[in-house]
């Protein structure tokens, strides 16, 4: 599923079927090449839904374990959340120091949260080539 498709989906609590927010983005853990959390347009407390709290990602909605699964981010996750804040349009650099376009979209596996591919303005980069995401750029293997 593409990040642009995921964005805007309503997030519903599986515990009581109430809406807890709207998916607004993803936080990627580049080390594990997977989605660490979903960022929500907030309705209550906590703006992030850790992947462990995601029950299902479907065509029309994201099911969360419950409203209490929502968190505020801290530590390394906070750094990643800040770096992933404006993922689309972010500069892509190779580990050889050359620019490789900007991020157009991200393809994630809705079941496992694995990052399958990074669509840039120039190419499709496999998720396995992802090295890091920071304030300056997304870094991929050349």
């Amino acid at each position: 599923m593409l990040l642009t498709q995921l964005t805007g989906l309503s997030v519903v609590s599986a515990a009581d079927a109430t809406s807890v927010g709207v998916a607004d983005g993803i936080v990627i853990d580049p080390g594990g090449r997977r989605v660490a959390a979903l960022r929500l347009k907030k309705t209550g407390s906590g703006s992030y839904l850790p992947w462990s709290g995601v029950r299902a990602v479907g065509r029309d909605a994201v099911l969360a374990a419950g409203a209490d699964a929502l968190r505020d981010v801290e530590g390394e996750l906070k750094r990643l959340a800040e770096a992933c804040g404006e993922l689309i349009g972010k500069r892509v650099l190779t580990d050889a120091g050359a620019e490789a376009g900007t991020v157009r979209d991200v393809d994630v596996d809705p079941d496992s949260g694995t990052v399958l591919a990074l669509h840039t303005t120039r190419a499709e980069v496999p998720g396995a080539a992802l090295l890091g995401i920071g304030g300056h750029a997304v870094v991929v293997r050349a």
Partner: peptide, 11 residues
């Protein structure tokens, strides 16, 4: 020229 870590931060 920026000096960038593999984590994507310009230091």
């Amino acid at each position: 020229r920026p000096v960038v870590t593999l984590a994507g931060e310009a230091v």
